[in-house]
Computed example of a mutant assay.
Amino acid sequence: MSKPTVALAADHAGFELKNLLRDELKAQGYDVLDLGTNSSDSVDYPDFGRKLAETVAAGKAARGVAVCGTGIGISIAANRIPGCRAALVHDITSARLCREHNDANVLALGARLIGVETARDCLKAFLETPFAGGRHSGRVAKLGQPA
C-alpha cells in the first residue's frame, strides 16, 4: 500500500529543515511535493504558506509541512486558505493532538526554535495520528464556517 502524498514548503529560514524532512519522507516511502523554496536566499513566507495550503486544500496532497524561522508567519499565511488547518507545534504532544483533536492537515514548524530530532518526532506523530472524530467533529466543522 502506498503512503499518501505530503507537500512541503518553507521560506529561507526553513530551507534546510524542509530538505531534511523531505529526504526523511522519501526514505519512508512517501510521495513528496516540494513546493520550495530551493535555496537559503531571502523569500517571503506568505507566498510559500499560501502555495502549500492551496495544494493541500485542493487535495493534491493529503498533508503538508510548512517551515519558517518560527513557524508563526507561515502558519498564519496557510490558515488564510479555506480548507487548510495548519497547526504550529513544538513537541510530540502538540503534533499528536493537532491531528487527534483538530484534524490538522498542515504541520507548521519553526526551524530556529526546535531541533532536528524534535522536528522528526513531530512529523512522525503528525503523520501517524488519526483524527479521533466524535465530539471533535462538530468543532472542526465550525473551523470552516465564516465568523
Rank of each mutant, 00 (worst) to 15 (best):
G64V: 03
G73A: 07
R85W: 11
V56G: 15
G71F: 03
C68F: 03
A66N: 04
A57N: 08
A77Q: 02
R80K: 15
I81V: 15
A58S: 14
S94C: 10
A87T: 01
A58D: 13
T93P: 00
T93K: 06
A78M: 11
R85D: 11
V56A: 09
G73D: 05
T55K: 05
G69L: 07
C68N: 06
G71H: 03
R85Y: 12
V65G: 08
A95V: 09
I74M: 06
G73T: 01
A66E: 03
V89I: 13
D91C: 12
C84F: 04
G71Q: 03
R96C: 12
A61K: 07
C68K: 01
S75K: 00
V89W: 07
N79P: 08
I92H: 11
I92N: 05
R63K: 14
I72F: 13
V67W: 05
A87D: 01
C68W: 02
A61S: 11
I92L: 15
A62Q: 13
R96S: 12
V56K: 10
I74R: 00
K60W: 00
I92G: 04
R63Y: 14
A62E: 15
L88A: 09
N79V: 03
K60F: 03
G83R: 14
K60L: 14
G69Q: 02
A95E: 06
K60R: 12
V67M: 06
H90N: 10
V65K: 12
S94I: 05
R96Q: 15
A58N: 13
R80F: 07
T55F: 07
S94D: 07
V67P: 09
A78K: 03
A58K: 06
C84D: 05
A61E: 08
V65Y: 08
A86R: 03
A86V: 05
A66H: 02
A57F: 07
C68Q: 08
I72V: 09
R85K: 14
S75E: 02
V56T: 12
A87F: 11
D91W: 08
I76R: 03
G69K: 03
G64H: 00
A62Y: 04
I81Y: 10
R96N: 06
T70L: 01
C84E: 04
G83N: 13
V67L: 08
I76E: 04
R80V: 06
V89M: 04
G71I: 01
H90F: 14
I81E: 09
G69P: 06
I81S: 13
A66L: 05
G71T: 00
A77R: 00
I74G: 01
T93Q: 10
C84V: 12
N79E: 03
I72L: 14
A57D: 10
S94M: 09
R96K: 14
H90W: 14
K60H: 09
I72E: 04
S94F: 05
R63F: 15
I72K: 00
L88K: 07
A57S: 15
G71P: 00
G59L: 00
A58H: 01
I76T: 12
V56N: 13
A57W: 07
G64F: 05
S75C: 13
C68R: 02
V89A: 12
A61N: 07
S94T: 14
A95F: 13
G69W: 02
N79Q: 06
G73S: 07
A62G: 11
V67G: 08
G83F: 14
N79G: 06
G69I: 03
A58C: 09
